[in-house]
Amino acid sequence: MTRFLPAFIAACTLGGSAAWAGADDAFVEFRSLKPEVALQMAQAAMDSCKEQGFQVGVTVVDKSGVPQVYLRHRFAGSHVYETSYRKAWTAVSFRTNTTDLAATTQAGMPASGIRELSLALPLGGGMMVQDGDGALVAGIGVSGAPGGDADDLCAQAGIDAIADAIAF
């Protein structure tokens, strides 16, 4: 048996590496929103807030947190650029809507250290955008409404506006 062991190990190693190479090539494929769809979502979120009398900024980021679209109501404060971007970035980075993250990162919670990161902003208004299969395709951040719950409603209106386009 021991004389066949080296040949057996070599056969297993070669067979295993061939299977491994076929299953894991050099490329990663993923979905990302077209700029036109990201713009449509941002506009719908802005319009929803505007209808409620809120002056906001809206940022859409891709699944890596890179900005795709930024819209700002002409009377929104200058802070909405940074906060809407950071909310969208936080949602995609932690794969969690920021309202949920706000609760789990409170002082004394195991994830409270997230609040020490320079870009993380666990305040309501940042939401993940998922396709029909549940895969993360973007994030949206809204800032400027009176409270994170109102920002969330506007962000959700943006997502709802493109739901048919991203569902399978």
Rank of each mutant, 00 (worst) to 15 (best):
K34A: 14
D131P: 02
I140K: 01
G125Q: 02
S118M: 08
G125M: 01
G134V: 01
M46V: 05
W89V: 02
A163H: 10
A7K: 06
V28D: 14
F8H: 09
A165D: 12
G22W: 12
A107G: 05
E116K: 10
D25P: 07
P110F: 03
R72Y: 08
G148R: 04
L71N: 08
A11H: 09
D151T: 10
R31P: 06
A11E: 13
G139W: 03
T98D: 05
Q106V: 10
G15Y: 08
R3V: 14
K87N: 08
G65F: 02
L33E: 03
G22Q: 11
Q106E: 15
L101V: 01
L121D: 02
T90H: 01
R74F: 11
A18K: 11
A107F: 13
D62C: 05
A111F: 09
G158L: 04
Q106Y: 00
G139M: 04
A157T: 08
D25M: 11
A21Y: 12
L14V: 15
V66Q: 10
D164T: 13
V56Y: 00
A155I: 01
H79K: 04
N97A: 13
S118Q: 12
H73Y: 11
I162F: 08
W20N: 09
G113M: 10
P67Y: 01
F4Y: 14
P110H: 02
M46T: 09
G132F: 11
E51M: 07
Y85C: 05
M128G: 00
T90I: 00
I9K: 13
W20G: 10
F168W: 09
Q40C: 02
V69Y: 01
V28Y: 11
Q55K: 12
A167Y: 06
G141L: 07
T59D: 06
D47W: 03
L5F: 15
V66G: 07
A42F: 03
T83Y: 14
T98G: 06
V28L: 14
E116S: 15
A167G: 09
